[in-house]
Design a protein around this nucleic acid. Structure first.
Lengths: 341, 341
DNA sequence: CCAACGAATGTTAGCGCTCACGGTTCACTC
DNA sequence: GAGTGAACCGTGAGCGCTAACATTCGTTGG
C-alpha cells in the first residue's frame, strides 16, 4: 500500500549512513584500493541495509567503466546467430557485463548515424555478428569510428578486408567444406552439388576448390534462402535429376529441406543421394536418418568474440580465446553412390 | 589519421550553432510543441551538420523517457523463447525502443537486488519470458516492485497468481492439449502417454483432463529435459512397450527425439505409434514424416507483450494486442492405432 | 492605449555518479 | 622534534540532459 517509490537510494544516502563521504562509497563499490578494511566493511553493511544499487546511467555519464556490450545482428533465430549470441551471453554474464542487442533489418540501408545511434553512448563496446551485407556494413562503420571497442564474428565474406585484430574470422569453414567435398568425391561421386545459403562465400569457395583440385567441373550453384521451406523449394529440381548423387548444403536446415525433397521424390538416402549439412545442430544426430554434417562451435566463437573485445577494452594479458575447430561428422546421410550400369 | 575522438557533440554545441538555447534543442529532439517552425528547422539543420546524437545515459539520468525494454529470460535457444524474443524485438524496434536482454541462470537463486540490478535503472520497463522457476520468481519480484513497468509472457505455472493485467497468459495450450488428446482417443487409441518438458503444467493439465473425461486412467507422465537428446533417452523405455500407441510431447524437439527412438526401436510411425508435438517449428512440416503438432504463435505473443507494456507505460488507447490461437495441425505422425487381435 | 494574456524562448537546478585534486592522519626517519 | 611520505579520506566540479520556472515579446480586448 505504501509507496515503494520512495526515491532510489543514492551513494549519498549510503555515505551518510556509513558516516563517510560519497567518494569513499564510490571507491568501495568500484573495489578501488586505498580504503581501510574497517571503513570498507562499514560501507558494505550500509549498502546492504539500504539496498543500494548503483545507477548505470549516472555511472556511464560520469565517465566510468561501461560494462556493457551491444550485439548487432540481423536474425536472432538462425541457429548460428543464436548460438553465437549464447556464447557472448555466457561470457558477458560471467564478466558482469550487461548485454544489449540491436536487431537490424537486413532489407534496409543504415546511415552511419543510424548505426552509431544504436549504441548506448559514444564508443560503447560492440560485437557484430556479421552474416550478411547489412551487418558487414555496420561493422565497417564501427571499425572505422571506434576500432578499440568493436569486434565482429561470422563474416568471411569475400572481398572484405578483415583485420584479424578485430574481425574474428571465426571458423575455418572453407577448409572443412573442402574436406567434406573431397570425402564425397573419394567415395566415388562423379560430382558434388552445392546448395547455398545467402552468405558464407567461404564454404562455397572450399567446395569449389575441392572440385577444381579433383579436376571435376563445378556444377551450377543452387541458391536457397535461410529456411527449410526455401531449401525444399530450391532443391526439388535438383533431387529429381538421377545423375545428382551428392549435395553439400550451406547449413543443416537446408539439408533437412533437401532430405525432405528427396523423400518426396522417392530417392533414398544415402543409397541414391548423399546429403551433408553445416552446423551440427542438436537435431542432426537424432534425425531419421542422422545427418552427416560439420560441427561448428558457434558458442565458442561467441565466447571468443567477447574475450577478444575485453582484451581490447582492458588490455592486459588475457589468454587468447580458443574454440573447437570445424569437424566433419559422418553419420548416415552420406555414402558411396549407387553402382549403376 | 586525425582523432575522431574529438569529444562527442552535445546539445550545447548544437545550440550555439543554431543560435538558440540548449533547452530549445532539447525541445526539438523530443518533438515538444511550443517551438516555432523556423527555429525548429534551424536546430534540425544544426543537428544534421554536427552529426549530433543524443546521449542515452544523460537522458535517462535526467529523468527523461526511457525507451528501452529489458527482457529477462533463461534460455534464448529454445524455440518458444527465441520466437517470443523475436516478437518483442520486432515490436520494440518498430516503436524505437532499445532492447536489453538479461539471461538468468536457471540453476541459481536470485535475490531481489540481483534481479532489480539487471535493469538499467530503477523502474525501467521489463518483460519476463517465464518458462521456469527462476524467471517466474523474477517476475514476482518485478511485479511487486514496479507493476507499472513489467509484463510477463509464457508462464502458466499452476499455483502462481497471474493477474492478466500484467501477466500475459499467452496461449491457451491447455485447451489445445485437451483437444489433441481427444483427437488421439477418438481415433481409437486406448491410452495417450505424455512426455513432459520441464515447464508448462498447462499442457499436462489439458492432457489429463481429456483422459479423465474419456474415463481413461492417465498413464504415468514421463519427464524429459529440453533437448532432443534427453527426449530420446527418456522415451526409449516408452517406445519399447507395444501397448503404447500414442505419445503427446511437450514440444516439437521432444517429438523429434521420440520419433528417433521409435525408429531405433523398429516401430513405424504412424502405424505402430502416433506422435504429436507442440510449437510447429519450421522443421515440423518438412520432417520425414511431417510432424503432427500444435501451431503456437509465440512471435505474436512477444509482440503482444510489448504492446501491453507500452500500454502500461504510456496509457492511451492502444488496441488490445492479438495473436493466432493455438491450433492442432494434423500431418503424418498421427493416425489410428494398428488393429491387432 | 495599456493591462492581460499566451506563445516562444531562456535560465537555473539538479539527476547519481566519477575524476582530479586537496586535505588529514600517522608511522617513520634523520 | 621537525620533516617526509605513504595511506586514507573528503571536496568540488562537471558528464549531457530534462523539469520547472522565469522571461521576453507580439497580440488582444475593454
Amino acid at each position: 500500500m505504501s509507496a515503494p517509490e520512495s526515491k532510489a537510494v543514492s551513494i549519498f544516502d549510503v555515505a551518510k549512513r556509513a558516516g563517510v563521504s560519497h567518494q569513499t562509497v564510490s571507491r568501495v563499490i568500484n573495489n578501488a584500493p586505498m580504503v581501510a578494511d574497517a571503513t570498507r566493511a562499514k560501507v558494505k553493511t550500509a549498502i546492504a541495509e539500504l539496498g543500494y544499487r548503483p545507477n548505470r546511467s549516472a555511472r556511464a555519464l560520469a565517465g566510468g567503466a561501461v560494462r556493457s556490450v551491444t550485439v548487432l545482428t540481423t536474425d536472432t533465430s538462425l541457429y548460428g546467430t543464436a548460438e553465437t549470441l549464447r556464447g557472448i551471453e555466457d561470457a558477458a554474464r560471467a564478466a558482469g557485463f550487461t548485454i544489449l542487442i540491436s536487431v537490424l533489418d537486413p532489407d534496409q540501408d543504415y546511415s552511419e548515424t543510424d548505426i552509431l545511434g544504436r549504441l548506448p553512448q559514444d564508443g560503447a563496446p560492440a560485437i557484430v555478428i556479421a552474416h550478411d551485407e547489412t551487418t558487414t556494413a555496420a561493422m565497417r562503420v564501427l571499425q572505422r569510428t571506434q576500432p578499440g571497442a568493436t569486434v565482429a564474428t561470422g563474416g568471411e565474406h569475400l572481398g572484405v578486408d578483415q583485420d584479424p585484430a578485430d574481425w574474428l574470422v571465426s571458423l575455418d569453414d572453407r577448409t572443412v567444406a573442402e574436406r567434406a567435398t573431397r570425402y564425397l568425391l573419394d567415395m566415388g561421386h562423379a560430382a558434388v552439388h552445392y546448395l547455398a545459403i545467402p552468405s558464407k562465400a567461404s564454404r562455397q569457395a572450399g567446395w569449389a576448390a575441392a572440385l577444381a583440385q579433383a579436376g571435376v567441373e563445378a556444377p551450377e550453384v543452387v541458391f536457397s534462402g535461410w529456411t527449410v521451406g526455401s531449401a525444399y523449394e530450391a532443391a526439388t529440381g535438383l533431387v529429381a535429376r538421377p545423375e545428382v548423387t551428392a549435395i553439400l548444403c550451406g547449413n543443416d536446415d537446408l539439408a533437412f529441406g533437401v532430405l525432405y525433397a528427396a523423400h518426396r521424390a522417392g530417392r533414398s538416402v544415402p543409397g541414391d543421394l548423399s546429403v551433408i549439412g553445416f552446423d551440427d545442430c542438436p537435431l542432426a544426430a537424432y534425425h531419421v536418418p542422422p545427418l552427416t554434417t560439420v560441427d561448428l562451435d558457434f558458442r565458442g566463437v561467441g565466447r571468443g568474440a567477447f574475450e577478444l573485445l575485453r582484451q581490447k577494452l582492458e588490455g592486459g594479458a588475457h589468454p587468447r580465446p580458443t574454440w573447437r575447430s570445424p569437424e566433419l561428422i559422418v553419420r548416415e546421410t552420406s555414402g558411396p553412390p549407387h553402382h549403376r550400369r
